[in-house]
Nucleic acid binder design. Structure first.
Lengths: 343, 343
DNA sequence: CTGAAAGCGCTTACAG
DNA sequence: CTGAAAGCGCTTACAG
């Protein structure tokens, strides 16, 4: 039997209401009473029942992270863990607990989120990805639930979101290669249903256009966030008659696949092919050669998402702040892209 | 205003008790009533309030993962995410939600766990690591809370735990090198306060002893689960007058650091130094050369931990099953250790 | 500054 | 098979 507010009240010779007020640091309580009650709580080993509190206060001080099943294969574990670390750290600082949930498919995801939100178990949710036409986003938006998207929504532009400016980031990566003299630049994209794939493709195209360079449809391939995709893209590119001299890659993991393939075929990076990728995972500076990569501040994305969501929960959806937060990115130039074509 | 059991009851013309019974599939309820009530629940969009249910049933159907702050730097993100995926998947299958918590230090960790457990917010906790003299373990054990350790406890041998047989695994790795003819084998360990470091060191020592090989104190270095540690260990070893020809490494990330250092100094793997490490993260087969590594089934460790904990919660700490579960490991031999010394 | 009372949304013996 | 009642542990107007 756990000790309750009543036990404390009895022992302290006050009413349960008073104990409750001491607990929440109610201003109109005498310092004397407060101290006495606190001492007794300590002595009895009292711990407030979070569920009971939640039931009456109609707030849970918890948020939920939705981890899409598909993500397990799509993205790197590193990416998600870093995001989670950021989310949990900031949530914890603001007094919130974090629930982590996943579904085997979109239907399960909606059901899970619905159960948690409608069942009053969490106050809001963080979505770690953005697909086009996402039923989870539809559900959350329609029912007016507090949520934040790490990424961008195609359909709902004024949704709460935290994102990289992927168009700009990709523009920067491509521009960097152009400035080295490359004129034939390829792009390995991610799954086309992800908004991030679209955005990065767009930035790439724009950079080419601004530089007056041609874009060839066969220089753009779609894949997954997997080494295999990189490997396959590599062998495709290397067999092209007029192949690119540089590549922009949707993810470091894809780059690793390319690096391995190139190594097997005895090609050299950056001499035979320059590479720039995204995410700047720690191993990207350890590969041979070290990989140029766009650091998107993953931890910061998670941290900010937490912050923004909890703020919105507390303000009850008050729209007084920025709906869309952009986390700055930074191109980390390493050996994989220091070879100038002009030289 | 959320729709409650009362609303459903009123609309269905039954009592709240009956609705509650329908909800929990109580056997003594007529199919007719049940169907009618279920239809109304659907129609009204009823969702049971998890907190209210929890309050009266005194069970939360949630478990908590304690993510130690120090882990953020010590272990690879990959390792933790994989563990979490396993935990969440199995918990979700068994109808449990997963809370993820962390603390900046041991004190905060104990406080967090205490708040969650005593506050009746979670039914049990999973610890992702094992230090010697861990106050969190002390707390959990003393208060008789359901918990499972992923790893091994020095002090409490009969605690619920899921682990790799690290002594055997390390023995296997070392033995593999010995079978290739190596006689001077070094070991790069992790932080000495972690039980895993001790166990792996022990297996290494045993394999040497069994083969009648000498063990040199200077062939054993301690570090962190970081690339830097590998890098430093590498430069230490390579400057030794009578240096090892092979190394057993506590973690793949350490191996990457070594690989990088060796590459910079123009040494070759496996010709100049053979390597075998632990964890078999996906990138280990992508490095140059691909890394021999012990696969410890990380996902399986998490999955099983979830299973075991929830079972123990449901059986109310019934001791009818194995207290310590061992997840099988497997040595993945790759290029980094295929060089025979005898050849 | 403090207490009595009602109530959050559910479950579960106890009757019938 | 179903209902009325009590209660889980807390909070919060309403009084005083």
């Amino acid at each position: 039997m756990a000790v309750t507010i009543k036990d404390v009240a009895r022992k302290a010779g006050v009413s349960p209401s008073t104990v409750s007020r001491v607990l929440s640091n109610h201003p109109r309580i005498s310092t004397e009473t407060s101290q006495k009650v606190k001492a007794i709580m300590e002595q009895l080993g009292y711990h407030p029942n979070i569920m009971a509190k939640s039931l009456v206060s109609k707030t849970t001080n918890s948020i939920c992270i939705m981890l899409p099943k598909s993500a397990e294969e799509l993205f790197s574990n590193y990416f998600f863990m870093e995001l989670i670390r950021g989310i949990v750290t900031q949530a914890s600082r603001l007094g919130y607990d974090v629930l982590i949930s996943s579904g085997a498919n979109e239907k399960e995801e909606v059901e899970g989120v619905s159960r948690l939100l409608n069942g009053r178990r969490v106050d809001g949710v963080i979505l770690l990805y953005s697909r086009t036409n996402d039923p989870v986003v539809d559900f959350l938006h329609e029912n007016n639930h507090p949520f934040v998207l790490i990424g961008r929504s195609d359909q709902y532009p004024d949704i709460l979101s935290v994102d990289t400016d992927n168009v700009q980031a990709s523009y920067d990566a491509t521009k960097h290669l152009i400035s080295l003299g490359h004129e034939r630049i390829g792009f390995v994209s991610g799954p086309p249903e992800l908004v991030v794939s679209k955005d990065r493709l767009k930035g790439y195209m724009q950079a080419l256009a601004d530089a007056g360079l041609e874009s060839h449809p066969e220089w753009i391939v779609e894949g997954e966030f997997l080494q295999e995709s990189g490997y396959r893209a590599m062998s495709f590119f290397m067999n092209l008659p007029n192949r690119p001299t540089a590549l922009v890659l949707i993810d470091d993991v894809v780059a690793f696949g390319i690096l391995r393939g190139l190594h097997e075929l005895k090609y050299n990076v950056p001499e035979d092919l320059c590479l720039v990728s995204f995410n700047n995972i720690p191993l990207s500076e350890l590969s041979t050669p070290p990989l140029s990569s766009i650091d998107i501040g993953i931890y910061n994305l998670g941290y900010t998402a937490s912050q923004v969501l909890i703020q919105s929960i507390k303000n009850n959806q008050d729209a007084s702040y920025q709906k869309r937060q952009i986390i700055p990115h930074r191109l980390m130039i390493r050996e994989s892209s220091i070879h100038s074509v002009r030289s």
